[in-house]
């Protein structure tokens, strides 16, 4: 158990904000992506690829290998050197403590990466790092899963009986 956030109040993000981030993103750098297919990060990566996103894994322990058909990079700097085109989201699958250094790297490389959002996964919260990222002009989401948010906001999560919290009489769009 990471446990750090157990006692913290839940964070609230406006549905429209999260929807806009997901709509405006084509490429996601996934820091901590695992090559092991039963790990949550691998699940999320596979799902997001299926939704048309390019997901580029960053994981020093898997560097040089491919995860789900994508070359894995040692660090965000390493990825920026490869100049893959704009990477709108830096998605962090690391512990809350380790997330701070990743956020600082994302801030330093934000223009080279084309990054707009720093996203910390479910269970990952680092308020100091979030403040630094916001001061640098990045949007910050913490303690959320990109996959679950996509599923929630684009209607799929309810297929599995999960409460999306969405109430609307508008006809949903078929694709993001």
């Amino acid at each position: 158990m990471t446990g750090a956030s157990v006692s913290l109040a839940p964070l609230h993000y406006d549905n429209d904000l999260v929807r806009r981030i997901l709509r405006e993103t084509r490429t996601i750098a996934m820091v901590g992506a695992s090559p092991n297919w039963v790990r949550p990060s691998n699940f999320a990566m596979k799902y997001l690829q299926g939704k048309g996103y390019r997901v580029i894994p960053v994981n020093p322990r898997a560097a040089g290998t491919q995860i789900l058909g994508e070359q894995t990079y040692t660090s965000l700097a390493d990825l920026a050197d490869a100049a893959p085109g704009p990477v709108e989201i830096v998605d962090i699958f690391r512990s809350s403590d380790a997330a701070g250094a990743v956020v600082d790297e994302a801030i330093a490389l934000k223009d080279r990466l084309g990054a707009r959002t720093v996203w910390m996964q479910l269970g990952v919260r680092n308020a100091d790092a979030a403040r630094r990222a916001e001061e640098a002009g990045l949007t910050v989401i913490m303690d959320r899963c990109v996959k679950i948010e996509y599923g929630r906001l684009f209607g799929e999560i309810g297929w599995q009986g999960v409460n999306s919290g969405i109430i609307s009489a508008k006809r949903p769009r078929l694709h993001h």
Partner: peptide, 9 residues
């Protein structure tokens, strides 16, 4: 791997 956050904590 270092995907050590889990969803559970």
């Amino acid at each position: 791997d270092n995907d050590n956050t889990g969803n559970a904590g």
